[in-house]
């Protein structure tokens, strides 16, 4: 009889990296369903292409570099789905795939793979596409194939917005996964219940945008429209809560959310882009090491050296 000798603990919780990533994918399902309902089946095609490109890129890179293949941890799937949610349904498929390749290859793998990247891969993928293919990235088409403007563009131009209920359900122009606030909130609740994320960043992020918009815009309706428009909900729930690129303490997460909120409002109010969420998160990603340093926990009974 040979016995295994290892250090304690000899018991592990059931949650592992793959189950966490799978939970994030499950939490995104309502948003994808909403996209199919609102924009049609092509949404699914975009999601499939993004996921396939992300997983394949990771697989080929790791094979090529003779690294252990980690596609089984579902993290590339998460990146693919989130990137797809950040694209308009009409995006040419090769562009969608290109976004995934940039996200996985440049942002994730070249920085050392899972957990070592400093910026959110999906966000950089989105920004690269946005800057490279501005035309297709802002071609907002409604289900009836009528071109439309996003609520943020409408607000900037001073036009007429969809009603609050339509804003909430997602009957409006926008990226395929960002439009339905309802679907995103269902995903948020799921992630909270499964303890995948904490409430701190999303609540601080959305709360800050709400309060600042109210102060700057002067009325509640405007503030409500601001928090339901654009990529705010998607960003706050799914991208500003990415583990590797955000602080790992709750106080740090509050600061991160607050910073994201302030930057989003600044860009939306005074920037030349209608949308500010992805730039705000990317900027805060870069600040994360500093926030982490400022928000270290205080050891119990610890005495200053």
């Amino acid at each position: 009889m040979s016995l295994i000798v290892s250090t304690s603990p000899h018991l592990r919780s059931r949650t592992d990296t793959a189950s966490i990533m799978r939970d994030v994918v499950i939490a995104l399902v309502p948003a994808v369903i909403a996209a199919v309902v609102i924009f049609g089946l092509r949404s699914l095609l975009v999601v499939a292409v993004c996921v396939a490109a992300a997983v394949l890129t990771e697989f080929l890179y790791e094979k090529g570099c003779k690294l252990p293949v980690t596609v089984g941890d579902w993290s590339a799937v998460v990146t693919g789905v989130i990137l797809a949610c950040n694209l308009p349904v009409t995006i040419p498929l090769w562009q969608a795939a290109f976004g995934s390749i940039v996200a996985i290859l440049v942002v994730k793998q070249l920085f050392g793979g899972l957990g070592r990247n400093f910026a959110n891969p999906a966000i950089v993928g989105r920004i690269v596409l946005f800057l490279s293919f501005s035309k297709t990235m802002t071609a907002w088409v409604f289900p009836d194939a009528v071109s439309t403007a996003t609520p943020l563009a409408v607000m900037a131009a001073g036009g007429k917005l969809p009603g609050l209920l339509d804003m909430f359900l997602g009957v409006k122009g926008g990226c395929l996964g960002e439009v339905s606030v309802l679907a995103l909130l269902i995903g948020f609740v799921y992630l909270l219940v499964r303890q995948v994320i904490t409430w701190h960043t999303p609540v601080a992020f959305v709360g800050t945008v709400f309060v600042l918009s109210w102060l700057l815009g002067g009325d509640v309706l405007y503030a409500l429209n601001q928090i339901m428009a654009g990529g705010l909900m998607l960003g706050a729930v799914f991208m500003a809560t990415d583990y590797a690129t955000t602080p790992s303490t709750n106080s740090g997460r509050l600061i991160f959310g607050l910073g994201c909120g302030i930057l989003t409002v600044l860009i939306r109010q005074w920037g030349s882009y209608a949308e500010g969420v992805s730039f705000a998160i990317l900027f805060m990603n870069i600040l994360t090491p500093y926030i982490s340093k400022w928000t270290r926990t205080k050891p119990f009974g610890g005495v200053k050296a």
Binding site: D16, T17, I20, T70, D73, S75, G113, L114, G115, R116, T198, Y243, A244, P247, S248, T249, N250, T297, K298, P299, F300, G301
Partner: peptide
């Protein structure tokens, strides 16, 4: 596997390490 920086170890340490 690789640390994903989820912060669970920090959130669950009884001594706030």
């Amino acid at each position: 596997t690789a640390c994903i920086k989820c912060g669970r170890c920090i959130a669950h340490c009884p001594l706030n390490l």
